[in-house]
């Protein structure tokens, strides 16, 4: 945990982003888009790469298995395409955008813990070719998502 927090604050200061100071602080990156089911997405041309957010991995705890989809499979916005298993629970991963899977992060098969240690970089989950570039507009920006997490935490 200490290492993770260090990582978080280092990334945070480097990228000039806000780190929530309530309880377990979560990192939210500026240039990404966020789904309300706690996936992040980075759009690069007609491709999108995504994973689960720092907030999500923090709530899940140690990730021990990531169920990845097959390359070539289509995914739709808001629908589950895989799952993340932590020591305490299972959580579906929903696709923040629609498209066709072009790459999956095979590293996660051997090292599922990358989702915890590096949720926005080495812990990415899949890359898709977008079928509807407009869909990303429905997602939250970093500011909205930070607020969303704070509100959700405050409820519990």
């Amino acid at each position: 945990m200490a290492a993770r927090l260090l990582w978080a604050s280092r990334v945070a200061s480097h990228l000039r982003i806000s780190v929530s100071q309530r309880g377990f602080s979560s990192v939210v990156l500026k240039d990404l888009k966020y789904a309300d089911s706690h996936e992040w997405v980075k759009i690069e041309g007609n491709k999108a790469i995504f994973g689960i957010t720092d907030h999500a991995q923090d709530h899940l705890g140690d990730v021990v298995y990531v169920e990845l989809p097959d390359v070539g499979r289509s995914v739709s916005q808001g629908e589950s395409f895989g799952a993340v298993e932590s020591v305490k629970a299972t959580s579906d991963i929903n696709s923040p955008v629609s498209g066709t899977v072009v790459e999956v992060n095979e590293e996660l098969t051997e090292s599922p813990g990358l989702v915890n240690s590096s949720p926005y970089e080495e812990g990415w989950i899949i890359k898709v070719e977008l079928s509807d570039a407009g869909e990303a507009q429905k997602l939250m920006d970093s500011e909205k998502y930070s607020k969303f997490c704070e509100e959700e935490d405050a409820k519990h």
Partner: peptide, 25 residues
């Protein structure tokens, strides 16, 4: 504990959010 873990994590999924929040409230 399993159900407990489920309820914690399930709140990550939007579809269940309202029902779970109500139960916690």
């Amino acid at each position: 504990l399993w159900q407990l873990g489920q309820s914690i994590t399930r709140r990550l999924a939007q579809s269940d959010k309202k029902a779970v929040s109500r139960r916690y409230f």
